[in-house]
């Protein structure tokens, strides 16, 4: 069923799922995104890395318009991002987002968190939504926590619930904004395992992360950002073993040192 609709989509549109054209954004005097051009094709896993303040999180957030842009164009599956309103809401339902701070709805149980979007946005009936939610929660390994509230879960569990919540919408692309940066070291791997599996299943993913191990093993492409620009893009092997730019060499020498 899913396979058929995906095939149909890719005939209708092109294989370019997310396209950023000449995107610029300022935070006051800070030119945080400078002439960004980036194309992400269907099924591709793109990892965005770079020093803090380089604009990588902002880049990720512009893709579902949590951040507006000053100029340029962003297309999702061939359609330009609309203005704030119903149409944008509809488009956001197709773009899954996972945040650094999980952002699970604190007043709802884990199960309700995963059901809410399906019921209120997709208008799925409750029974179906619950079945899908439970299946997804099992898949990310927190099925037994379904009736707890987010605050009762560990960070790693919360983040896996957040991934399940995004997947419940059946998104075309998943955005991960530093999904493991707020986690204790022993919980990082449980989240990365889920993401690895997702990548293997063919999900289109944009991942902003500091996890170089994940970038090496799961990414099709590494995008290196510094000072609001995309400095370098390459396959992970090539990027980590033989970075072209001095900025990337410098960055890698600092983080791979320990």
């Amino acid at each position: 069923m899913t396979a058929v609709s995906v095939a149909k989509d890719s005939v209708a549109a092109t294989d370019e799922l997310v396209v950023l054209k000449n995107v610029n954004k300022h935070f006051g005097a800070l030119h945080v995104l400078q002439d960004i051009d980036l194309t992400i094709t269907r099924g591709e896993v793109v990892v965005v890395i770079g020093p803090s303040g380089s604009g990588k999180s902002t880049l990720c957030r512009t893709i579902n318009r949590l951040e507006t842009i000053d100029s340029g164009e962003i297309l999702i599956d061939g359609k330009p991002l609309p203005q704030e309103g119903r149409e944008l809401a509809r488009l956001r339902a197709d773009v899954g987002m996972v945040f650094q701070s999980f952002n699970l709805f604190a007043h709802k149980t884990v199960l309700e968190n995963v059901m809410l979007g399906q019921v209120k946005v997709r208008r799925t009936d409750k029974k179906k939504a619950e079945d899908k939610a439970r299946t997804l929660l099992d898949r990310v390994g927190v099925g037994t926590q379904a009736d707890k509230y987010p605050a009762q879960l560990s960070g790693g569990q919360q983040q896996r619930v957040a991934i399940a919540r995004a997947l419940a919408m059946g998104p075309k692309v998943m955005l991960f904004d530093e999904p493991t940066s707020a986690l204790d070291p022993e919980m990082i791997s449980e989240v990365l395992d889920v993401m690895q599996q997702l990548a293997r299943d063919g999900m289109t993913m944009v991942v902003v992360t500091h996890e170089m191990g994940f970038a090496r093993s799961a990414a099709n492409r590494v995008v290196f950002m510094a000072d609001g620009r995309i400095v370098e893009q390459a396959a992970p092997d090539q990027f980590f073993s033989n970075p072209r730019s001095d900025r990337a060499k410098d960055f890698l020498s600092k983080i791979l040192h320990h």
Partner: peptide, 10 residues
Amino acid sequence: QAEAARSLGM
């Protein structure tokens, strides 16, 4: 919280 809700398409 609001960002997460909007990201779901609410």
